[in-house]
């Protein structure tokens, strides 16, 4: 149940960050003002990239590890049938 919620949250965050990274292409958050050493659109894209990088890290516990366990169980069961 908790995994299902986490997965929904994962995809929500990922899609929002992905859409967010495109905003400067539509002239949103695209002014030449400075956020520290970065221009606003660059700072914004890099922030989205940080979020997406965290999503990539979350992929492992959320998806790859459970898949690996299911494959092991499936192959054990299949071996038992043969």
């Amino acid at each position: 149940m908790l995994t299902g919620m986490n997965r929904k949250l994962f995809w929500l965050v990922l899609i929002l960050a992905l859409i967010g990274s495109w905003l400067p292409y539509f002239n949103i958050l695209n002014e030449l003002v400075w956020v520290g050493p970065l221009s606003l659109p660059l700072a914004w894209v890099l922030t989205c990239n940080i979020v997406l990088t965290l999503c990539a890290i979350a992929l492992y516990p959320l998806y790859f590890k459970p898949l690996s366990e299911r494959i092991d169980a499936f192959e054990r069961k299949e071996g038992g049938h043969e």
């Binding site: 990539a56 890290i57 992929l59 492992y60 998806y63 790859f64 898949l67 690996s68």
Partner: peptide, 10 residues
């Protein structure tokens, strides 16, 4: 393995 692919993705 799938875990190897997962770590590569990470």
């Amino acid at each position: 393995s799938a875990k190897v692919l997962g770590k590569v993705a990470m």
